[in-house]
Amino acid sequence: MIPAAGIALMVALALMLIRLLAGPTLYDRVLAVNSFGTKTVLLLALLGYIMGRPDFMDIALLYAMINFVATIAILKFFRYRSFQVPMARKSVPPSGDDE
């Protein structure tokens, strides 16, 4: 049953690639990358069980952190120095996305 769960996760990853390639706006792609990362974390943890190597859990934990930082970094880049997205509001609320 564990390999079946891994295959289900891989199917979900492959389906998410469609949204990543076809997403009409930038934010759809960011969302797809973020969700892809979450599924990758789960798949990494599952692979540790399938291959019998508990060290994969550390990689999954690390990947969760990198995924979060990468999403925030991409969004921040496109919010403050953008070529194509019009900035509708000048003032940025302080509790926005500068974590």
């Binding site: 934010y27 960011v30 979060f68 496109f78 919010r79 953008s82 926005g96 974590e99």
Partner: peptide, 14 residues
């Protein structure tokens, strides 16, 4: 947090 960041960025961008 990242969901809110994406939604807020999209909303700010119009």
């Amino acid at each position: 947090t990242s969901t809110h960041a994406a939604a807020s960025a999209a909303h700010t961008a119009g």
